[in-house]
């Protein structure tokens, strides 16, 4: 496991994560990073402790008036009749073949589970393959594989894109990214990722990519279409 993770989710994002405020796609990518990153686990634990103490604080802002006329006694009576769970469920191991890679890698558990129904790889352009996952109606989630030496056309993001590097590395104008790095890109960044050694990532977009240069611009309506299709399949 890579011990030198350089890029992490922001404190704000981690906090939204532990509060349960993120949509599923974003929650999954943050969770997958945390499985690979000890320092984020420690940070999340601290944030959670903080969230819990403000949750139970009688003076906290998080107060709502529970309808007082509701009678909970029958609810309680039915709950205590349910059987209890006496032992931890045995964790099923999910194995996923990443058939675009010529070697096997171990995916973070949450991603392996999310992909357990199988990945359908599609070649898109110049050595790039994608496999979509349908996790929620608001994000586009996909595994992206860049073959050694390939390059994505220059693009910006209309929303934000969270990318977790799973294997190999890629670089763009702003730096080089290795396994376990968590990268956020949004409308401010105009970037052109490329990979020398090949790279497997998991990316979550909360709106479609926008290509900004050359012929690739012709693909913009197609990208919007793809995004709509991916996110509406569940609606």
């Amino acid at each position: 496991m890579n011990t030198e993770v350089k890029l992490h989710p922001s404190t704000e994002l981690l906090n939204q994560f532990i509060q349960g405020e993120l949509v599923t796609g974003k929650s999954v990518v943050v969770s997958a990073h945390m499985e690979l990153c000890k320092s984020c686990r420690a940070k999340a634990e601290e944030l959670q402790a903080h969230a819990v103490s403000s949750w139970v604080d009688p003076g906290s802002a998080l107060q709502s008036d529970q309808p007082s006329e509701v009678d909970y006694s029958s609810m309680l009576a039915s709950i205590v009749k349910s059987p209890q769970i006496k032992s931890e469920p045995i964790e099923e191991l999910v194995e996923i073949d990443i058939d675009v890679l010529n070697h096997s890698i171990k995916l973070p558990k949450v991603l392996a589970k999310a992909a357990s129904e199988g990945l359908q790889w599609k070649k898109v352009a110049g050595g790039i393959s994608e496999a979509h996952l349908f996790l929620d109606n608001e994000t586009l989630c996909e595994f992206i594989y860049m073959a050694p030496g390939c390059q994505v056309p220059v693009h910006t993001h209309q929303g934000s894109e969270s990318t977790l590097v799973l294997d190999g590395s890629f670089e763009d104008e702003l730096g080089e990214y290795k396994a376990s790095d968590f990268i956020i890109r949004d409308g401010q960044h105009n970037h052109q990722p490329r990979s020398k050694e090949g790279c497997l990532c998991f990316a979550v977009l909360d709106s479609p990519l926008k290509f900004t240069e050359g012929l690739a611009r012709l693909m913009n309506p197609i990208n919007s279409y793809k995004f709509k299709k991916a996110t509406s399949r569940l609606a």
Binding site: T24, S31, K113, L135, L234
Partner: peptide
């Protein structure tokens, strides 16, 4: 998730 009819491949206990 259930209310929004999102797929049940993963659940909250996988995420946390």
């Amino acid at each position: 998730r259930k209310q929004k009819r999102q797929p049940s491949t993963i659940s909250a206990d996988d995420i946390w």
